[in-house]
Deep mutational scan, measured.
Amino acid sequence: TRVETATETAWISLVTALHLVLGLSAVLGLLLLRWQFPAHYRRLRHALW
Rank of each mutant, 00 (worst) to 15 (best):
R2N: 10
G29I: 12
L33G: 05
A17I: 10
L28I: 02
E8P: 09
Y41R: 05
L18Q: 03
L22K: 01
L33A: 12
H19C: 04
G23V: 14
A39N: 15
H46S: 11
L30N: 04
W11K: 04
L31H: 07
T16K: 02
H19L: 03
L32W: 09
L32G: 01
T1V: 12
H40W: 08
H46M: 06
R43H: 07
T16C: 09
L31T: 13
W35R: 15
V15E: 03
R42Q: 15
L24S: 00
T5H: 01
R2V: 11
R45M: 10
F37Q: 04
P38E: 11
R34S: 07
L28P: 06
L24A: 07
A6D: 06
R43V: 09
L44N: 01
A47L: 08
L32R: 06
W11D: 00
R2Q: 13
F37V: 09
R34V: 03
T1G: 05
T16F: 08
E4G: 08
Y41F: 14
H40F: 08
Y41H: 09
H40D: 00
Q36I: 15
P38A: 15
Q36R: 15
R42T: 15
L31I: 11
T1M: 13
L48E: 07
V3T: 01
W35M: 15
H19T: 01
S13H: 09
I12C: 03
R45E: 00
R43A: 14
H19N: 05
W35C: 14
W49G: 00
L31K: 07
W35T: 15
W49L: 00
L33P: 05
Y41L: 09
I12H: 07
E8L: 05
F37L: 10
L48Y: 03
V15H: 04
G23T: 13
L18F: 14
H40T: 10
L30T: 08
A17Y: 04
R42W: 07
T5Y: 08
L31N: 01
G29K: 01
L24F: 11
V15W: 01
T5R: 03
V3C: 01
G23N: 05
L33W: 06
T1H: 12
L18D: 05
V27P: 04
R43S: 11
V21W: 03
L22S: 13
R34W: 05
V3N: 01
P38K: 13
R45L: 09
E4T: 13
G23K: 07
A10F: 00
L44V: 14
A6S: 14
A26L: 13
F37A: 08
H19E: 05
A39G: 14
L44T: 07
W35A: 15
H46Y: 08
R34Y: 03
A10G: 10
L32C: 06
A47S: 09
L24I: 10
T7Q: 13
L24T: 02
Q36L: 12
E8W: 05
L30A: 12
G23P: 02
H46K: 05
R34M: 02
L31A: 12
R2A: 11
T9M: 11
T9L: 12
R43N: 09
W11R: 01
W11F: 09
G23L: 14
V21G: 08
A47W: 10
A17K: 00
E8N: 02
H46G: 09
S13E: 03
H46I: 03
Y41C: 15
L31F: 12
V15K: 00
S13M: 14
L44K: 01
A6F: 05
R45Q: 09
R43I: 02
E8F: 00
T5A: 00
H46Q: 08
L14F: 00
L24H: 09
I12G: 02
L44M: 10
A10R: 11
L32V: 14
S25I: 05
T9Q: 09
R2P: 12
A6V: 04
W11A: 00
L14W: 00
P38S: 12
A39S: 11
L20I: 12
F37M: 07
H40I: 05
R42F: 11
Y41T: 13
L32E: 03
L28H: 00
T7G: 07
L20Q: 05
L44R: 06
I12T: 10
V27H: 02
